[in-house]
């Protein structure tokens, strides 16, 4: 197990290296941007801007600003948003993590569950109309942009049928239903397609044939020997899935007017609120890198083959 700890340590080191690079690059990119970060810059005279810059340390040489920023970052300070009442970015984002996280988790759970069911059904009925229907459903899910789906859901279930609130985040769980559905389509389609491919391969494997030769029924073989082996690699697409959810949350939160990170991010982009943009960038990257690490560790735990081989050293 010693070498596994070493491997893990190496992975965590890379994780921080990645985050460091992202933070640095973001910092310098932001400095390249034209204009000042003040919401009322049109009304400000050069002198006022100078004073403001002085106050926020923006007149210092770039390397000094960089060091100050990075050391504050280590302490968890993402700076101050100039656009939104001079609120610290950390505070601005922390109130918004809740709704985003709830939607994201609900969407992943719902989407992958349905996707796994759909994928298994498709694989077990390979090359029949059931398979075709399931595969086509998955392709529809992949193809229709989430903002189109979100608007459709809003129109049908919010405006016409009035089953759920059209927008906003003030109705408890029922507020989360439509945005969750809109976000769940992508994980559903991706996992359905992934599971189908894995399952088809597993079902044609020698050990499945041996299991059939033992006298197990097709269904028992599929569930006892097939699904487990097909599910294990599914954790590898959790990373890309998380990215897709972040992307999706930007539009879905906007369409449903949900006070989440995505909505704040879009607002900040449109108002050149650089500290917040940097904050969200670092937050998203940290989440992705964290998920990739967790997936790696998880994979080692659930796959008995990796459990041992990992003890041998890196990768």
């Amino acid at each position: 197990m010693k070498s596994y700890a070493k491997y893990l340590g190496k992975r965590i080191l890379y994780m921080f290296l990645t985050l460091f690079l992202i933070a640095s690059i973001t910092f310098f990119l932001m400095k390249l941007l034209p204009g000042t970060p003040y919401s009322n810059q049109d009304k400000l005279s050069e002198e006022q801007i100078f004073i403001m810059n002085e106050k926020y340390g923006l007149n210092e040489p770039l390397p000094v600003q960089y060091v100050v920023y990075m050391s504050r970052l280590l302490g968890g300070d993402l700076g101050t948003s100039f656009q939104f009442n001079n609120t610290p970015v950390t505070e601005l984002l922390s109130t918004r993590v809740g709704p985003s996280l709830q939607l994201g988790i609900q969407a992943v759970v719902l989407g992958t569950t349905l996707g796994i069911i759909l994928g298994v059904i498709a694989a077990m009925n390979q090359n029949t109309w059931i398979d075709t229907t399931a595969t086509f459903t998955a392709i529809l899910g992949r193809s229709i942009p989430n903002f189109v789906i979100a608007v459709l859901l809003q129109l049908i279930f919010g405006v016409y049928l009035k089953w759920f609130p059209i927008a906003l985040w003030n109705n408890g769980f029922s507020s989360s239903v439509l945005p969750t559905l809109a976000l769940a389509i992508a994980p559903l389609a991706d996992s359905a397609r992934f599971i189908r491919t894995e399952m088809v391969e597993v079902l044609s494997s020698d050990y499945v044939e041996l299991a059939r030769a033992k006298g197990l029924s097709r269904l028992t073989v599929a569930f006892k020997h097939g699904v487990r082996n097909a599910l294990i690699p599914l954790v590898t697409i959790l990373g890309p899935m998380a990215v897709a959810l972040m992307t999706g949350s930007l539009v879905v939160e906007n369409i449903f007017a949900i006070p989440g990170i995505g909505e704040q991010f879009v607002k900040s982009i449109l108002t050149n609120d650089y500290p917040t943009i940097m904050g969200v960038t670092i937050l998203y990257s940290a989440m992705l890198v964290g998920i990739i690490l967790v997936v790696d560790v998880l994979y080692g735990i659930i796959d008995p083959r990796i459990r041992v081989t990992n003890e041998g050293g890196d990768e």
């Binding site: 020698d206 050990y207 030769a213 033992k214 197990l216 029924s217 796959d303």
Partner: peptide, 26 residues
Amino acid sequence: EKEMQKIRGKDIAMIFQDPMTSLNPT
């Protein structure tokens, strides 16, 4: 198929060519 399931593994059993792939890895 049901009747065959009762025969397979019980009355007629089979050994496959490649032992490396004929066991469930998990």
